[in-house]
Amino acid sequence: MDAARQWGRRALDFVDAVERLNVPGVVKLFESEIKACGFHAYIMAGLPAPGTALPELTVANGWPAEWFELYTRENFSALDPVPRFGASTVQPFEWSDARYDKEDDPAAHLVMMRATEFRLRDGYCIPMHYDGGGAVISLATEHLHLDPLAKSALQLIGVYAHNRIRSLSRAPEEKRELLTVREREVLRWVAGGKTSWEISVILKISERTVKFHLVEASRKLNAVNRTSAVAKALARGLIKL
């Protein structure tokens, strides 16, 4: 199997596996995958927000305990150039791409230098943006050696791990109350490629009613169209394929 197919298969196997796992299982599998790529530490956390402490924003924490404590105590999230750059881009990037001038921005330089004390010298960051904010998945190593195929696979793996953990961590009643049973049912059929007319036949309701449920679901999810509504519902764990 060539490298492209190998990485593609690995990412798809991960996506398939996490749908059947609980939070500890997802974390364990994610850590195994990034370790195979040379990373020994990571964090999944929301982007810094005024008045919000890092522990409140953290989805999964694989940083050294001492570094996390120091980072939190000194409020390094407000100074760190990596999440700052992550807030401005939708593309994954290497830590070295989060450029700063150490003379003009000594605080950013301090964070990066202190990180090296914990073997966090280089890394790869996957930014995520969704309603109400955003997050970063930051993977750390001492020496980054990652080919483009591995980067693409890690992006898919990271996004699915993050979304699955967020979905499982959200209160069940929040999931149930956001969309009605019928709205979720309609979205599942849309995700399966069915048209409004086909869904009306399957569910034995009018096509107009199907469209009404789609409009309502899109409104609740703040989605611009049915495709966006399906994507957001999947990301939040409201429906499954």
Results as ranks from 00 to 15, higher is better:
residue 154 L to V: 14
residue 235 A to L: 09
residue 108 A to H: 02
residue 37 C to N: 07
residue 188 R to M: 11
residue 196 S to G: 15
residue 137 I to S: 10
residue 119 R to N: 15
residue 42 Y to F: 12
residue 102 K to V: 14
residue 226 R to D: 14
residue 211 K to E: 15
residue 101 D to A: 14
residue 119 R to T: 11
residue 163 N to T: 04
residue 137 I to D: 06
residue 15 V to C: 07
residue 137 I to P: 12
residue 199 I to V: 02
residue 197 W to R: 14
residue 114 R to Q: 15
residue 188 R to N: 10
residue 179 L to A: 06
residue 236 R to D: 13
residue 40 H to K: 06
residue 144 L to N: 04
residue 144 L to S: 04
residue 117 E to D: 13
residue 185 E to I: 05
residue 50 P to Q: 07
residue 54 L to K: 04
residue 186 V to H: 05
residue 6 Q to Y: 03
residue 38 G to D: 01
residue 87 A to K: 04
residue 189 W to P: 06
residue 241 L to D: 09
residue 230 V to L: 10
residue 58 T to A: 09
residue 94 E to V: 10
residue 236 R to G: 13
residue 229 A to Y: 14
residue 161 A to H: 05
residue 183 E to D: 10
residue 102 K to M: 13
residue 87 A to T: 00
residue 15 V to G: 02
residue 41 A to H: 01
residue 168 L to S: 11
residue 107 A to I: 06
residue 173 E to A: 12
residue 98 A to Q: 01
residue 213 H to G: 06
residue 174 E to I: 09
residue 61 N to Q: 02
residue 119 R to M: 14
residue 159 V to W: 00
residue 190 V to G: 00
residue 16 D to Y: 11
residue 95 W to V: 10
residue 146 L to R: 04
residue 136 V to R: 01
residue 77 S to Y: 03
residue 230 V to E: 02
residue 157 I to A: 07
residue 38 G to V: 00
residue 224 V to Y: 05
residue 25 G to M: 01
residue 233 A to K: 03
residue 19 E to H: 06
residue 102 K to P: 14
residue 152 S to T: 15
residue 219 R to V: 05
residue 209 T to D: 12
residue 61 N to Y: 04
residue 135 A to D: 08
residue 149 L to V: 11
residue 14 F to T: 00
residue 108 A to Q: 02
residue 113 M to E: 15
residue 110 L to G: 00
residue 182 R to W: 05
residue 80 D to S: 03
residue 105 D to C: 15
residue 66 E to V: 03
residue 52 T to Q: 01
residue 240 K to T: 04
residue 162 H to F: 15
residue 32 S to W: 01
residue 164 R to T: 08
residue 135 A to M: 12
residue 165 I to E: 00
residue 16 D to R: 09
residue 96 S to I: 14
residue 193 G to Y: 09
residue 118 F to V: 06
residue 90 V to N: 05
residue 22 N to S: 12
residue 31 E to W: 03
residue 174 E to Q: 12
residue 240 K to I: 10
residue 8 G to S: 03
residue 112 M to K: 09
residue 63 W to M: 11
residue 61 N to G: 05
residue 110 L to V: 01
residue 226 R to F: 15
residue 132 G to F: 06
residue 74 E to P: 08
residue 7 W to V: 03
residue 4 A to R: 07
residue 213 H to P: 11
residue 95 W to I: 10
residue 87 A to W: 01
residue 191 A to N: 11
residue 100 Y to I: 05
residue 17 A to P: 04
residue 89 T to H: 10
residue 45 A to H: 09
residue 187 L to H: 09
residue 103 E to S: 13
residue 220 K to S: 07
residue 129 H to S: 15
residue 16 D to F: 12
residue 94 E to G: 11
residue 98 A to L: 07
residue 128 M to A: 14
residue 91 Q to M: 11
residue 106 P to E: 13
residue 177 E to M: 08
residue 111 V to Q: 03
residue 31 E to V: 09
residue 163 N to Y: 02
residue 130 Y to C: 13
residue 1 M to K: 03
residue 210 V to Q: 04
residue 81 P to V: 12
residue 87 A to R: 03
residue 214 L to Y: 15
residue 13 D to C: 15
residue 230 V to F: 06
residue 66 E to I: 01
residue 197 W to T: 15
residue 230 V to N: 08
residue 36 A to M: 12
residue 118 F to L: 09
residue 76 F to Q: 00
residue 168 L to T: 09
residue 156 L to R: 06
residue 83 P to T: 02
residue 156 L to K: 09
residue 114 R to N: 14
residue 211 K to P: 13
residue 66 E to D: 09
residue 111 V to T: 03
residue 81 P to L: 11
residue 66 E to T: 02
residue 21 L to V: 04
residue 63 W to R: 06
residue 95 W to N: 07
